[in-house]
Design a binder for these strands. Structure first.
Lengths: 338, 338
DNA sequence: GGTGATTCCACCATCGATGGTGCAACGCTT
DNA sequence: AAGCGTTGCACCATCGATGGTGGAATCACC
């Protein structure tokens, strides 16, 4: 069973007494076009099976300029939203008979460039740039290499983008929070926590937060009600503690900008007395099944990973590099009915 | 900026008036061995940069028999444990200058085979088989193709394996649950939910559950206290409801066999009155940050993804295909102190 | 100046699959 | 039987990078 070298079409050819090109044509399905008899085809397929032949994709790719690989970069795997992007990406790739390569780049622009360079070297047939902190240079690299690509989750200006309608989701979430807050005329005590101000999505959500707050309460939120303290639970925890320490009380409402940030916020909230939540409501942009069932209600905005990916594929398949259109995908709103 | 064909070493060669082999040697770092002057090397590197040259890995792979790709299959992405395996795998791959390909196979043996066949076609330099329902046939495929591989998370009999010490983790978790249950002399009312009886890990955990239950209470658990109702929240939810309906009351303790199953169990528990948890304890094999802070305490066993992957790499790097040794990795125990 | 040792680079076959092209062999027509 | 169209397959160049080998040019030294 041990084999030093993989069996090639030449092995199959000599083993069955036909030419390698014939074997190749049969094994890659183009045998009818090459008018090879079905009898021969069947025989060769059998021999190939017996010899354990498997196509060498690099040789094929070298010749045909198609690798059969499709790449996606994203910030990290260990996150419900991003891993559901992976899952959806994979399903679509599989349906197209492509081998998915999903690599996380840890929100590091340098790592993003390195990774894209690697994927280009491996000749991915197309590339999904998801959640890249700096998508445009990546677009340039792809364009120069002639690789079809698309931005997902975060828009870029040099390629088509498919992103969640953050403004819509954040507006609705803010509206929900304001609706549960008293007194209605004030916007103080309603805070935004998490995310990064360099991040387009966060900016959109902040914009919605501010707009809705002002529209609903008639009061312009103070800058220190908005704390884009980064990703990561630790920063969010610290920010939440500071918030409570500063105001001396629990805020009226919190808009938490990711489940990751929520982890940190939660470390604080879980220790509060139960009655602290009587006039306090919390929302989270992003979804986690357990958040629906904490000892206090949490409103969530769930991004539609499947639709994001499907839409992106539809655009890439269409192959129209028509500028840098941005397609918005509506998120799902999961608000406690109580 | 638009480019129809990627620039090759030949383009760089003609552009700079040297031979392609010289360019190749310079661009892949073997120029010193080939005694090429540093002056020339510098000049070529510059030209290559200006032309936007990127190595064609398929051509390189075809020639050198090393693709620079490394594969891992796993059941699914959208899960904290598996996605942390991905994350750890990627870090190690990156450190070795390999491009990681992680593909989920949805616990489907046929999909596992198809995926491994694809990865072999792409000539991955080595393959991690994580959580495969049927690892041995995959081992055979790899062996025939001469591809180094290793089982992770679930052991196989044809290759080295690195798996969590499930028996240890489940023993400790069961001991914890029993220790909080009353009356101490009985084992009834302590249930195991989730997982699959075809799954080695589940079997190990059940074995530990039974052994510890018997050792601690002196009573052999009834078969219907163990319900490996599969993965997926829905089945677990149904099983939990049935359990409560059957016994007419909340059980004394639940051993939930994954966070996914926990989602289902939780849908039931969250609706129970608070005093239902007075004499009720819950444990979950696998970790989730939010589980630590529900309105009732949850003991968790956290598998050490980083150590699993690092150990597997160490074995693969060592390259000793010494039979099918199984290396056990201790999980972390996260039990509420209260 | 001649011989040998270096230095530095060019030439060329090779990896495996692919597809354009060439060409026997066979069948059919008149 | 000559002419012509088909059928069915073989031949061969090619994709881009790599590394063994050959050899021109320069240098050292007697």
């Amino acid at each position: 069973m041990e084999m030093k070298r993989k069996t090639t079409i030449y092995d199959v050819a000599t083993a069955s007494g036909v030419s390698a090109s014939t074997v190749g044509a049969i094994l890659n399905g183009s045998w009818e076009k090459r008018r090879i008899s079905k009898d021969l085809a069947d025989r060769i397929v059998e021999v190939a099976g017996a010899l354990g032949y498997r196509q060498n994709r690099q040789a094929s790719a070298l010749r045909t300029q198609r690798s059969g690989l499709i790449g996606m970069i994203l910030p990290l795997h260990d996150n419900r939203y991003f891993s559901s992007l992976s899952q959806a990406f994979e399903a679509e790739a599989r349906a197209r008979n492509l081998c998915p390569i999903v690599v996380s780049t840890l929100r590091d622009p340098a790592e993003e460039k390195r990774t894209v360079a690697t994927l280009i070297s491996h000749n991915v047939d197309s590339l999904f740039i998801a959640g890249a902190t700096d998508p445009d240079p990546l677009s340039q690299m792809c364009t120069q290499a002639g690789i079809a690509h698309i931005n997902v989750d975060l828009p870029g200006s040099l390629a088509a983008s498919v992103v969640t309608n953050n403004y819509f989701g954040a507006s609705e979430l803010t509206r929900y929070l304001v609706g549960r807050s008293h007194p209605q005329g004030s916007c103080s005590g309603i805070h935004f926590i998490g995310g990064n101000k360099d991040d387009f999505n966060t900016l959109e959500r902040i914009r919605a937060f501010q707009d809705v707050l002002e529209a609903e309460t008639g009061c312009k939120p103070d800058p220190d009600q908005i704390n884009a303290c980064g990703y990561g639970p630790d920063a969010a925890e610290k920010a939440t503690r500071a918030l409570i320490a500063r105001s001396g009380a629990v805020p009226r409402a919190l808009f938490v900008n990711s489940t990751i940030a929520f982890e940190g916020v939660f470390r604080v909230l879980k220790d509060l007395p139960d009655d602290a939540f009587d006039h306090f409501s919390v929302g989270c942009f992003d979804w986690d099944p357990f958040l629906a069932h904490l000892h206090f209600p949490v409103a969530m905005v769930r991004q539609d990973a499947k639709m994001l990916i499907e839409t992106a594929f539809r655009i890439i398949d269409g192959d129209r590099t028509e500028g840098a259109a941005v397609t918005l995908i509506k998120p799902e709103l999961l608000f406690p009915s109580a």
